[in-house]
Design a protein around this nucleic acid. Structure first.
Lengths: 131, 131
DNA sequence: ATCGTTACTTACCCAAAGGTCTGTATAAAT
DNA sequence: ATTTATACAGACCTTTGGGTAAGTAACGAT
């Protein structure tokens, strides 16, 4: 039961060091806490302005929202459309690439939903708390 | 092209706050950088000792390996088997739960393999570097 | 003339992550 | 007697993440 690797699509899980590098980056930067939440909100609402995102992402600071959006833009996950009006109007939307990352991460969401009880039980056991 | 949510399995991606909490924890703690790398190595090699893991995980410090293994053990991802011999011998192996998380994250690996070029191209474009 | 609005940028600061180094136990090998 | 091997734990210190707050620009409304 340990040998079951993941070979659904292609040779993806292989030992390509460049893929490994990207995955490490994904875990560490692209797919950090805020990125995932922004991605989820954009996936739900389609196009949103800065303020709208700030209101919906729940707990994010202006600074982190800006930073996160810049990273996502750099990685080709979102488009940033500036309308030269006053007061400024900037719209953000997911690219197909961004949407596909969301779908990829959906597997983790499903896992979390499916195994939540089990993880919490394991923690209680480990911590020696009563059942 | 923006409405495509992820409804592969069940109502997983829904708005259950407990799931959201767990996912946030997953991204932030359970499924952090080192956890994923340890998980991958254990999935490849089956059972490994502390030293073997330390040698194979590439760049991890002793402290972080210990910490990561403790967290994974607490979450029910790995088993820790101590043999009371001198010098000490401790073996680590994935549980079925741990293996299933690896499979869930495999979607991200596949995504990374499939879209690596695209992400790197987007970055070059954003950074204004030559093609 | 001043205020409000929007989307930032920048400076400052604190807490957490994480690396390095040292200590520990114990028996077998030299 | 000293060294070696193993799997840690703990102290110390640097780096990074991330929050707060203030500043900016430019125009319409009061």
């Amino acid at each position: 039961m340990g040998d079951v690797r993941c070979d659904d699509d292609d040779r993806a899980c292989a030992d390509d060091p460049r893929v490994e590098t990207l995955v490490t980056e994904l875990i560490g930067r692209v797919a950090d806490k805020w990125t995932m939440l922004v991605l989820e909100v954009l996936d739900e609402h389609g196009t949103l302005r800065f303020g709208g995102l700030n209101r919906r992402v729940a707990g994010i600071s202006q600074k982190m929202l800006t930073q996160t959006l810049r990273h996502m833009e750099r990685d080709g996950m979102v488009t940033r459309t500036v309308y030269p009006v006053i007061p400024p109007r900037v719209e953000y939307a997911l690219t197909p690439l961004g949407a596909s990352l969301g779908e990829a991460f959906c597997g983790v969401w499903i896992w979390a939903a499916k195994h939540r009880e089990r993880v919490e039980a394991a923690r209680r056991l480990f911590d020696g708390r009563p059942t």
